[in-house]
């Protein structure tokens, strides 16, 4: 799901050639001939998605996969009474929609820009053409889908086995920079979205953050100060002793 890119700002292409270069860095298209990637780029387009704009709705025809260049896209489902369940939040550099495009052709969820976003839209026809003409594209697609499946399996496992406190702590410990010692890391989105992403209610998140304070976690706005990363790991992971902390 992740692909290398120096920074979100550096991802903005200036023409079709740089669009091809961006697509060529996706694990999905890695190793494909320049001609094949150029053909995909020629059919693709960059679109701006203002904050809170619906990119696609659940059940809509899956006409394109999307690559996030900047901003964030929230993928979610809604109940009939309007409750929202956030499946994932995609940030640069990531892509989504492959399974819907190549599966039954309908998006199973809604997608909306959480913040102003820039997205590459790769149409279904470009994907199908690549799959039929480039055997390597089929191999890479299986790899990309298998990776998505692992990521979702991990999320399901966490939802089924970890308490809300453990889920919040694990999310914080997985943020860039949360490696060792005393650190301040930054939440990638607001607390309401965080609660939705972790499958807990907003008011429960406040209670969990209060319970994390004695474990050395202080949250102010988007900033999270962890007094001792290793101590937090030991506190929230049963059986994670000194060896576990050292190994990480």
């Amino acid at each position: 799901m992740r692909w290398p890119c120096p920074s979100p700002g550096a991802c903005r292409p200036e023409g079709e050639q740089s669009l091809a270069a961006l697509l060529g860095r996706l694990p999905l298209f890695r190793g494909l001939s320049a001609e094949a990637i150029g053909a995909i780029a020629a059919l693709s387009a960059i679109i701006e998605v203002p904050r809170h704009t619906l990119l696609f709705g659940e059940g809509a025809p899956a006409t394109a996969l999307h690559v996030v260049l900047s901003g964030q896209i929230k993928v979610f489902s809604l109940t009939s009474d309007g409750r929202e369940s956030i499946v994932e939040v995609f940030s640069p550099p990531s892509f989504f929609g492959v399974a819907a495009v190549l599966g039954d052709g309908r998006f199973p969820v809604h997608a909306e820009a959480l913040y102003d976003a820039t997205v590459i839209r790769v149409p279904r026809e470009a994907m199908l053409e690549a799959l039929s003409s480039q055997p390597l594209a089929a191999l890479r697609t299986v790899g990309a889908l298998a990776r998505c499946r692992m990521a979702l399996a991990a999320q399901i496992h966490q939802l089924e086995t970890l308490s809300p406190l453990q889920r919040v702590a694990e999310f914080i410990l997985a943020l860039p920079g949360a490696e060792h010692g005393t650190v301040t890391v930054r939440l990638p989105f607001n607390k309401e979205t965080l609660a939705g992403r972790l499958g807990i209610r907003r008011e429960s998140l406040s209670r969990v953050l209060a319970r994390l304070k004695p474990l050395g976690v202080a949250v102010k706005g988007y900033d999270v100060c962890i007094l001792d990363v290793a101590a937090l790991r030991r506190a929230v992971r049963p059986g994670c002793g000194r060896d576990c902390a050292a190994a990480t």
Binding site: V87, A138, L145, I156, G199
Partner: peptide, 24 residues
């Protein structure tokens, strides 16, 4: 490979439904 893509796509759809349900 194309059959694998179809199977994985279906499995992903099921996982997405499961996650949405677990969170809701």
């Amino acid at each position: 490979l194309h059959a694998m893509i179809a199977i994985l796509s279906g499995q992903l759809r099921d996982q997405i439904r499961q996650i949405a349900d677990l969170k809701l």
